[in-house]
Design a protein around this nucleic acid. Sequence first.
DNA 1: GAGATAATAT
DNA 2: TATATTATCT
Length: 315
Amino acid sequence: MACKAELVVSDQFPAGLRVFVVDDDITCLRILQQMLRRCMYRVTTCSQATVALNLLRERKGCFDVILSDVHMPDMDGFKLLELVGLEMDLPVIMMSADGRTSAVMRGIRHGACDYLIKPIREEELKNIWQHVRKKWNENKEQEHSGSLHDIDQHKQGSDDTEYGFSANEGAEELLKTQKNRRDAKEEDNDELENDDPSTAKKPRVVWSVEMNWKMMIPVQQRSLVLCDAVPKRILELMNIPGLTRENVANHLQKFRLYLKRLSGVAQQEGGFPNSYCGPVEQNAKAGTLGRFDIRAFAASGQIPPQTLATLHADL
DNA sequence: GAGATAATAT
DNA sequence: TATATTATCT
């Protein structure tokens, strides 16, 4: 019953992205629908979480991304998020008027890939396609019964859909590929001392937004339970194939640098992110990471401008 | 400037 | 010795 996957990524923008929106507020739903349509997305709306869940179960593979409100009468948005995460491989973006960091982190902890604070601007919706991707797990030839993947390496219809997953690994390449589809005139010259095939080249790790989020989760929770937001542990919790402890450590370093910079600019703002905590921190009372945001950090990289520059509603 | 790798520190 | 943190290189 699952419908045929039809997502086709044109060379410019993923028009036609199938977005499933869940919100008990009809007005809100309408507005979102309009905005999403203006973004050229295909929109399906639903005002009841329970119904939404059924619909999703019934039509696996019919949507590319889910946009769900947090507060709903029949079912908590987090519950929906949880179930979706459990049963299907779809990116879920939470929406709420509650922009407190704790609320956002809660969403992320539950597995949301992004968190939009209402009112939501169209610009923010334009970028949700970036959350659409194949799961990180490099499914190595292992066909799991049950759910079938969809948005895959198929380029039906339209022209160039450069979805080449050659050797996978990064998987994050997807985004990159789309962006840098500039001429690939690489013949290259110069001495290319190929190493032996056995020692494959070093795939450069691209820290996607999701990965940043994932890294932040343990970092945040450090204040709650586990007291070891260290590279090794974080790596385990992130559970991303191929990622190494070094990768995490290095990224953590960058993150700290980023925070340092931030603190410098924002003259000891009331609350300051002491959450990433290096070694034993005396004031281990994190929890309130004032107003730093991972999005800005993550966004400072590959992903375009306003991608997730959404959380700035804290003021 | 991001990420890898080498150098130190614990 | 292993892992964390910092410095340097690509």
